[in-house]
Nucleic acid binder design. Sequence first.
DNA 1: TCTGGGGTCCTAGGACCC
DNA 2: TCTGGGGTCCTAGGACCC
Length: 406
Amino acid sequence: MSPIRRIAHLDMDAFFASVELLRYPQLKGLPVVIGGGQRTVDEMLRDRFADRPLAKIPPEAFPLLKDYVGRGVITTATYPARQFGVGSAMGMMKAARLCPQAIVLPVDFDEVRKYSRGFKAIIRDIAPLVEDRGVDEVYIDFTEVPGGQREGGRVLARLIQKAIHDSTALTCSIGVAPNKLIAKMASEFNKPNGISIVHEQDVQTKIWPLPVRKINGIGPKSEVKLHKLHLHTIGDIAAQSAQWLIDNFGQAYGAWMHDAAWGRDDRPVVTESEPVSMSRETTFDRDLHAVRDRQELGAIFTDLCTRVAEDLQRTGYVGRTIGIKLRFDDFQTATRDLTLDDHTADPAIIRRAAGQCLKRVDLGRKLRLLGVRVGKLAKAGELPAPAATPAAPHVAEQTLDLFPGP
DNA sequence: TCTGGGGTCCTAGGACCC
DNA sequence: TCTGGGGTCCTAGGACCC
């Protein structure tokens, strides 16, 4: 008899903020938010207090949300900050209204990545089948791990929690369930530092009362549509026939939604995957106009192409579809792309193709964001038929005329 | 005073080929 | 004058996730 499938979802608690609190333990218990623009506020602090250890910088010296100016969103809020209704993905300005006294720190990606690699390595030592879901989340297949079935997975979950905490002083929350879909919901039940075990027979009591938005895959748009159809809980969806859901949401999405509401999900835990695309994008400090700010835009554009080319080269990939993304001042987004005959990781070729794309967009409105993407990736060493690439002009030699002149 | 940056997947129309 | 389907690739947009 094969063992019962047990899948865990592990989510690090307030990860970005918790990593900062390791550096600044004096902020523990205070409302702290991570996010915002590129300003490295903490470097400023380090300069000002160069004579003392980071942990000795007084909390009063840290910058406050009420003094924050500029664009950006909250990446993570500590639990004390969440008391005020501040949460991730919230605009900084809105957060400042809710909790002006919160301390703001910028994201330190290097530090976050370091801890991300660390906690994942600890998990893999205990349970090898781990699926990456970004810096702070993973799925883990407990099914065949020794002890993975004990108490429905609780014993192994506790062991992993303890191993991560012993090594990093960070906490996480874990849900263990028959599949990824339910495990994901379960990991939220006892946050922070919690464990939640859900069995197949618990779906009606533990899952059906939840709002539809708790299903991973039902976002803001679908939520609105479901509400208009008077469906508010997952149980409300489960009470509909698959056909009714298909009629209202389309074949694929409707059928999936029906399965999801009944807790059915047979997706495997995928331990390895190849990237599909790589991109770089930036939101400007102020909206830029294609004509009036063309010098500045041209420089940003070249920089984005250079950085995405560096990303490709560093990771050993080449791509064949070059695309751009524009966001206008009204937040409307446009994309254009162009598929080349040959794969490339050359910044000059990428910039030329991206420039072609740019010519196909009406640049009358002001822009708030510009992005460059390379898709149809292949490993640089594993190209089907390496074709000779025509000599490309060096990036620096190209004009900035891609944006229209006055 | 709105709304980051990095991704994946899906849909749908048109081109093009057999 | 009528009149196919099927398959694949390209492109644009959009939903969703972390």
